[in-house]
Simulated scan of single mutants.
Amino acid sequence: MSDEVSFWKTSPSQWLNLGAYLVSLIVIAGIVAGGIFFPPAFIALVLPLAWIIWKYMVVKCQQFELTNERLKITSGVINQHIEEVELYRVKDTLTIRPWWMRVVGLATIKLETSDRGQPKVLIPGVKNGVELRETLRKEVERQRDKKRVREMDFNEIEDEVDLA
Rank of each mutant, 00 (worst) to 15 (best):
S2H: 04
D3G: 11
D3N: 11
E4K: 04
V5F: 04
V5W: 05
F7I: 11
F7Y: 15
W8F: 11
W8K: 07
K9I: 05
T10I: 13
T10M: 13
S13T: 03
L18A: 12
L18R: 09
Y21F: 03
S24N: 11
A29R: 13
G30F: 15
I31W: 05
V32G: 12
V32A: 15
G34A: 09
G34K: 00
I36S: 07
F37E: 14
F38P: 10
F38K: 04
P39V: 01
A41C: 01
A44W: 13
V46Y: 11
V46E: 07
V46N: 08
L47Q: 04
P48S: 15
P48F: 13
L49G: 09
I53V: 08
W54D: 03
W54H: 04
W54S: 06
Y56G: 10
Y56I: 13
V58R: 02
V58K: 05
C61Y: 03
C61D: 09
C61G: 07
C61N: 06
Q63G: 07
F64A: 01
L66V: 01
L66E: 00
L66I: 00
T67M: 15
N68Y: 14
E69P: 06
R70A: 02
L71K: 06
L71W: 06
K72Y: 06
S75D: 07
I78T: 15
I78K: 07
I82N: 00
I82Q: 06
E83S: 08
E83R: 09
E84T: 01
E86D: 13
E86G: 10
E86M: 10
R89W: 01
R89N: 08
D92Q: 14
T93D: 05
T93W: 05
L94H: 03
T95F: 02
I96G: 03
I96R: 14
V103I: 14
G105V: 01
G105Y: 02
A107W: 02
T108I: 14
T108S: 15
K110R: 13
L111P: 11
L111C: 08
E112M: 09
E112S: 12
E112R: 13
E112A: 12
E112Y: 07
T113K: 12
D115C: 05
R116P: 09
R116F: 12
R116H: 11
G117N: 07
G117R: 00
Q118H: 10
P119S: 12
K120R: 11
L122H: 01
I123E: 01
I123P: 00
P124Q: 00
P124D: 03
G125F: 02
K127D: 12
K127H: 08
G129V: 13
V130W: 14
E131H: 03
L132Y: 10
L132F: 15
L132K: 04
R133Q: 14
R133C: 13
R133V: 14
E134V: 05
T135N: 07
R137V: 09
R137A: 03
E139A: 07
E141A: 06
R142V: 15
Q143F: 12
R144E: 08
R144C: 14
R144T: 10
D145S: 15
K146Q: 08
V149I: 15
V149E: 12
R150D: 15
M152N: 05
D153Y: 10
F154V: 04
F154K: 08
N155F: 15
E158G: 11
D159G: 06
D159M: 13
E160P: 06
E160N: 14
E160T: 04
D162I: 15
